[in-house]
């Protein structure tokens, strides 16, 4: 194998095939993020609603929270 193509080896540098537990917690962490987003920003929206006596900020907060969660998931796990 030529030295210019080190990424052609099956395990791309890191020892990610070493154990069967490695990577199996990803789903749990992703679910944590996905719950955290709507919950946090929904709570913020709910608090702003209570302060400003409006009603539309809570759903907006929830939607924004889901979007931010997916953005963070992409940042942490989605980049190859």
């Amino acid at each position: 194998m030529s030295p210019a193509s080190p990424n052609l080896t099956p395990s791309g540098g890191k020892d990610e095939r070493s154990g069967f537990s490695r990577g199996s917690d990803l789903a749990a962490q992703i679910v944590s993020y996905l719950i955290a987003g709507p919950l946090t920003f929904g709570a913020i929206g709910w608090g702003l609603d209570a302060l400003l006596s409006t009603h539309f900020l809570r759903p907006i907060g929830i939607i924004v929270g889901v979007a931010l969660s997916m953005y963070v998931i992409w940042l942490r796990y989605g980049r190859p």
Binding site: Q29, Y33, A36, G37, L39, F41, L68, Y71, L75
Partner: peptide, 28 residues
Amino acid sequence: VPAGLAPAMVPVIFLLEAATFFLIRPLT
């Protein structure tokens, strides 16, 4: 806060990450 983030996003993402670290992870 994960690396490679636009500076404007840092407080928002930090809020989210802190909630995940301190609240949602133990809760789940």
